[in-house]
Design a protein around this nucleic acid. Structure first.
Lengths: 145, 145
DNA sequence: TATTGTTATACTCTATAACTATA
DNA sequence: TATAGTTATAGAGTATAACAATA
């Protein structure tokens, strides 16, 4: 359907983004592993620190099947990092929420993501501002979570 | 060891990168799935299209255990997308290489990564150049693959 | 009937440890 | 002895399908 012109500059940027993505993702998994969390567990926990979320909505957020979320939340709950709460307005719904221990673990993990800040050291403040604005416009173009 | 100052701008950029990474990664898996490939299979196949690579070096490249690579290459080989070749200079080594069918599949996949190019449409050519240069400097600061 | 969450199942990815064949 | 690749094993993520409880 879409037959975009083979813009060499766009290709180069896409490849660079691919490199950044691969590196970031790998480092994120490693950082999570240091807290005995898998990447998926860390991502769900981080989401639940922002806001308690029904199981179904977690699945929609990560674009995965609801059955996956059951297992991930099971394992987080078994370690006391997350709890399931009933939804007063709909007894079918279970709302997953981070416990204080979960919020603490997530905060420690977040603080350890130096690898993500480190490459920015090569840029001046003005350049970081430029980068931020360009990324914002790229991200803003997509569908909201 | 590293106790970087809590620079709000850096934090914002890191969060934006996190968003880009999450979106790109998800879309990449979906795109690979459309060709009946897992993300890991697609990444290995793409690497082998660049250059035939010994099993051990594939593992080092992706920073995973060599035993993983065996299974991934097994499955790619079973579908005729990859083949193992002996290394004439060291009979212990097996060199994995993309077959013509594998290169074709990888090319089709690469062509379908519109999602990565699409957000760039919001940027002018000058802005893309700026973005490219900033990303280059970020990436260049890390360890070479 | 439709929806929420779960269970059961099968496949893949991942790390660890032990094994083989070469070096 | 050290290295390259594999096998065996176990835990985790994922999609599919079927199910109970609730709407």
């Amino acid at each position: 359907m879409t037959s975009p012109p083979p813009d060499p500059l766009a290709v180069e940027v896409v490849e660079l983004i691919g490199t950044v993505v691969a590196r970031y993702h790998r480092e994120y998994e490693h950082a999570a592993a240091r807290y005995a969390l898998t990447g998926a567990q860390a991502r769900v926990l981080s989401l639940l620190c922002v806001e308690p979320t029904p199981m179904r909505r977690i699945a929609r957020y990560f674009e995965c099947e609801p059955s996956n979320v059951t297992g991930i939340v099971d394992r987080l709950e078994a370690r006391g990092l997350v709890e399931r709460r009933p939804d007063p307005s709909d007894r079918r719904v279970k709302i997953a929420a981070a416990t204080p221990a979960g919020r603490e673990a997530a905060a420690r993990l977040r603080g350890s993501l130096d690898f993500a800040r480190e490459p920015l050291a090569a840029l001046s403040e003005a350049e970081r501002t430029t980068l931020r604005d360009l990324l914002k416009r790229m991200v803003g173009g997509g569908a909201p979570g």
